[in-house]
Write a protein that binds this DNA or RNA. Structure first.
Lengths: 248, 248
DNA sequence: GGAATAGTGTCTGTAAGACAATATAGA
DNA sequence: TCTATATTGTCTTACAGACACTATTCC
């Protein structure tokens, strides 16, 4: 019979509860922050100031602030804002990895989020725990840097999730600046999917989704001007009933 | 300058690492174990032997065994086997909930999995921490029991995820006994989706997925006998390119 | 007019929805 | 035969793919 059985009530139990932190795994949050520029999908990396993996590049992440974070998502948002200044963005929980070996300090669990940011108006600041911060381009599901912990694998899985979801959602809209053309948006789909798309099909889909509104403005780079659109207010991510087949 | 900066190497840092310097949230795994019988989607519940929420019903779950579990999924599998005797089943990580309030003992993180089991050949045993165990039928995304912690909300979200995925995958195949008819399989789809399906469309989809093989046997309940099928060996979940629209 | 990019028309193919038609058992 | 369930036929509809065609700019 354990000591636990002697408590008379929930209140009694809680009063005497001793959180023995020694048998708990380390718990953290990592955020794969994506943006698109220079015709490439980019991910935000920080250079670690401290051990372990001191000086190595890593995904943005950190520990829960048990006093100030109300939820796991708060931790993710706090870290995102600390590094980019961005308060709101598309943020989605991706998956959680927990095992004995991913951290040399022992059993460790990390919940991975991914964020999609327009590239404009972002001021990167290394912030706490980092000596450097930068965007790194993703080529063949990788960055050229050798990442700390299992972050290369986390990145690979996050990219896979993003790609997969782009095949049947309007997610890339969250990567666009305030005003953009349909050509711009198609280009972003193509960059993420690493595949060209049929213009006609693409425009049909976007029209169906009904997530954009025309502006009166046009943009002209060189030849025929293109109409500028903006994302409608308070629009949810649109889920198409069919996936883009041509990009698989 | 923190003490950390005095370490000379990764090895030096790790040798001196004290796992208590950061406060850690409690970390657990919960498993929403689904099956289908009596024309109803069912979920496995255990009655808690200990505080908090002593005597209340809850989802199957537990803490990570830092010495014996290699991964988070190991924890889920261990708990699944402890309660059902089932060693292998469809098991998918669903999401992770972490916040200050879900556990009266304080900051707590739980990673939720869902499992799909055929109903046959399962021996329920309460096991450690439970005084009772049973299947409970899901009606309107709920069970009638008032569940411990935030388990009602976890259940609701897990059901939503399952429903959504059934619209474009062959997941219900994992709920079937060894041999079953196409009518049986359609019925399971319909129970989960809470919607009747068009037989012709359903059969076309299943044929396309190519996940079943005919047996030579037929089953006759009363009227015309139906052909018995079994799931092909080593078949992955099939992802359809279109969702079932009639059930939305 | 020619080149380049923006944007449309339209035909084909695939698979879902709807529902009628046929098949095979017991009573 | 009639009834119930299993199974198939087939017409319609929605939307993706393919690609030709038109529109608007600069040179």
């Amino acid at each position: 019979m354990t000591k636990e059985n002697y408590y008379n009530s929930e209140a009694d139990f809680l009063y005497n509860y001793d959180p023995t932190i020694f048998d708990r795994p380390s718990t953290s949050v990592d955020i794969v922050i994506f943006t698109v520029f220079h015709e490439t999908l980019q991910v935000l990396l920080v250079q670690r100031a401290n051990y372990p993996f001191k000086n190595q590049w890593a995904l943005v992440g950190g520990f829960i602030d048990l006093d100030n974070d109300e939820t796991l998502e708060d931790t993710a948002k706090r870290k995102l804002e600390e590094k980019t200044g961005v308060k709101t963005s598309y943020l989605e929980q991706c998956f959680t990895i927990g095992n004995k070996n991913r951290d040399p300090r022992g059993w460790s669990v990390t919940t991975v989020y991914f964020a999609l940011l327009p590239h404009h108006n972002i001021k990167l600041t290394p912030g706490k725990g980092a000596i450097n911060i930068k965007w790194s381009s993703i080529m063949k599901n990788k960055v050229i840097e050798s990442l700390a912990f299992d972050h290369s694998e986390i990145l690979r899985q996050a990219i896979e999730r993003l790609r997969n979801k782009v095949l049947y959602t309007s997610l890339p809209a969250y990567l666009m600046p305030e005003k953009f053309t349909l050509g711009d948006l198609q280009k972003v789909y193509e960059i993420i999917l690493d595949h060209t798309l049929e213009t006609k099909s693409f425009r049909r889909r976007i029209a169906k989704a009904d997530i954009l509104e025309e502006t009166t403005e046009m943009r002209q780079d060189s030849k025929r001007p293109a109409k500028l659109y903006r994302l409608k207010n308070d629009i949810d991510t649109y889920f198409f009933l069919r996936t883009i087949e041509g990009a698989i």
